[in-house]
């Protein structure tokens, strides 16, 4: 009898508990693309230091020393030697999408106009060197990605990011004035790292340090291979590198 009474009490308790404690099962939320993908927009303005070195190794290694008027054989002979050393401002915009707040993919578009000196030398053994001082304009574009690894994980490091882009940059091609046949665009990559701070809502402001490396080749415009007198297009540059180091103020909408 006691057992039956105990069973009745238990069932009654369970029924009462079920009535008062049960909550309606929430409806399962339907996710849309906009829950994972957000628009991403970034503008940067900063300064950069740039160095460019391009030269082609001699194939014959014979050099005509015009001062002594004699032929000199030099294993380390180079020709069409161009270099630029300068620094100046740059601006850049990035437009793309951000995935699950961690990764952004974007298109880059920017312009740099460093001030410095361009050096032109026909042969490495030449005493004569031509120097032009002034601005060079370097528009560039590319595609890139940026990762915010600590978002929603470590609040202290929330704003840290790293990024990489593939870039094509256009030089002014001033070497053509000196009979050099290098292409007027360079291809390469750009790496960046920095920190953002949330200002309000979707707006962030921060600082970005970046480093880029580009190289160019011989212009297709001089791609004739038959023997002839004229500008020498057949050999690619032995050394072609542009290094850029910069720092920028960054504003992001994401």
């Amino acid at each position: 009898m006691i057992r039956v009474l105990f069973l009745v009490i238990c069932l009654a308790s369970a029924a009462i508990g079920g009535v008062y404690d049960s909550k309606p099962i929430p409806k399962r939320k339907r996710h849309t693309v906009t829950d994972f993908i957000y628009p991403y927009f970034e503008v940067m303005a900063g300064v950069e230091k740039i160095t460019t070195k391009i030269k082609t190794e001699s194939y014959t290694h014979w050099y005509h020393d015009k001062k002594l008027d004699e032929m000199v054989y030099d294993e380390d002979l180079y020709y069409d030697i161009y270099s630029f050393n300068g620094a100046g401002p740059n601006i850049e915009a990035k437009l793309g999408v951000q995935l699950i707040k961690h990764v952004a993919f974007f298109l880059n578009l920017g312009l740099a106009w460093p001030i410095g000196s361009s050096h032109y030398k026909y042969y490495s053994l030449d005493k004569e060197e031509y120097i032009d001082r002034g601005y060079i304009y370097q528009p560039f574009f590319g595609v890139g990605t940026k990762v915010y690894p600590f978002v929603q994980w470590l609040p202290v490091l929330d704003g840290i990011f790293i990024g990489a882009s593939l870039i094509r940059t256009y030089a002014n091609g001033s070497w053509e004035d000196y009979g050099m046949t290098y292409d007027n665009h360079e291809d390469g990559y750009k790496l960046e790292a920095g920190h953002l701070w949330n200002i309000t809502g979707h707006y962030f402001i921060g600082i970005t340090a970046n480093m880029a490396s580009y190289s160019c080749s011989t212009s297709d415009a001089y791609s004739h291979n038959a023997f002839g007198i004229g500008q020498n297009p057949t050999r690619p540059p032995d050394e072609s590198k542009t290094k850029v180091y910069g720092i920028s103020l960054t504003v992001v909408f994401k």
Binding site: S58, H64, F227, Q231, N232, P233
Partner: peptide, 29 residues
Amino acid sequence: ELDERNIHGAYTVETFIPPEDTSCGKFVN
């Protein structure tokens, strides 16, 4: 006259043949 910057195409330098009489110039290249 050999000036590598101004010659395109494939070739090898066999030799130089400057004239002994330099009254028109040395033409060492």
